[in-house]
């Protein structure tokens, strides 16, 4: 027993050291990112099985939806589509006007953006953080740090890329911070995820800051990660404590990040919007 007793602890120490080295190397460097992208393909069948119950129930639900319900949904969607279209026409003209005005005041023009459509995979990849998987990966040109936008606002950012899947950390994760600007008052601050479910918190607003319940804030574009102007959340509760120089502000994300099914992955392609783009827009 005695000589054998030494053996496992020797192996234990070896493996412990190896794990710690791995942890440090993977969190501080990009060394393994390419290798893991390829290896993560092994997760595909596991995630396929894990998502099957949800997909099954959704399929049943869709099948049982009756004709009238579908028709109603269809008319609502059609109406929404029409409204969006008319707004979009205005948007092009407005953007062109905006660019012209920016030129006049000599401001730098915005970067042009490209969007990649992705679906959320119905799995919950990790128990200890708020991540979701999307069905796009390195094979589709996804990269770490890409901003992810849902139909109603910012969802999060890409944190790890596999060959066919990437994981997205939601803005409601407490390790995430996002630079924002209030639409009404123009105040800039940083909003963090909070560990209490689907909420955000803004810890750095001074007690005298001009914020009210219901105020909308959008991405400010500072930090170069999230593109400017996408809605992030609205203020839900404001508490001011006499002893603290800061307000304690609880906010609600405009997009319910955990309920979204389809998202856009936004990438800056580095090009400034040019004069020819401007012509195209105004035509």
């Amino acid at each position: 027993m005695k000589p054998k007793g030494l053996f496992p602890s020797y192996r234990l120490i070896l493996l412990l050291t190896l794990s710690i080295v791995l942890l440090l190397m993977d969190s501080k460097t990009e060394m393994f990112s390419q290798g893991r992208a390829v290896v993560s393909v092994v997760a595909l069948p596991i995630h396929m099985v894990a998502s099957s119950p949800v997909l099954f129930f959704r399929w049943i639900g869709n099948d049982l939806e009756d004709w009238g319900e579908l028709k109603q949904k269809y008319t609502v969607l059609q109406r929404q589509h029409l409204i969006m279209q008319s707004r979009l026409q205005q948007f092009d003209a407005l953007q062109a006007e905006n660019m012209r005005l920016r030129k006049i005041i000599g401001a730098e023009s915005k970067l042009s953006e490209e969007a990649l459509f992705a679906r959320i995979v119905e799995v919950h990849p990790d128990l200890y953080n708020q991540t979701v998987l999307v069905d796009r990966g390195a094979a589709d040109g996804v990269y770490v740090g890409q901003a992810v936008i849902g139909p109603a606002g910012v969802i999060g950012q890409v944190v790890r890329v596999g060959l066919f899947r990437s994981s997205i950390m939601l803005i409601t994760d407490s390790s995430q911070g996002i630079p924002v600007q209030f639409v009404r008052s123009g105040i800039r601050t940083i909003v963090y995820g909070s560990d209490q479910g689907n909420l955000l918190s803004a810890p750095y607003l001074a007690r005298t800051a001009d914020v009210r319940r219901g105020d909308l804030f959008v991405t400010s574009g500072l930090g170069d990660l999230y593109p400017e102007g996408y809605p992030v959340g609205t203020i839900k509760e404001i508490d001011s404590d006499v002893n603290s120089p800061f307000l304690s502000v609880v906010a609600e994300p405009t997009a319910q990040p955990s309920a979204v099914r389809e998202v856009l992955l936004i990438s800056h392609n580095g090009n400034k919007i040019t004069a020819t783009d401007l012509e195209k827009m105004s035509n």
Binding site: L22, D26, S40, A43, D126, L133, S167
Partner: peptide, 10 residues
């Protein structure tokens, strides 16, 4: 670690 897209070694 690979399947959960987490930090390797955790």
């Amino acid at each position: 670690d690979v399947v959960s897209f987490g930090t390797l070694g955790r």
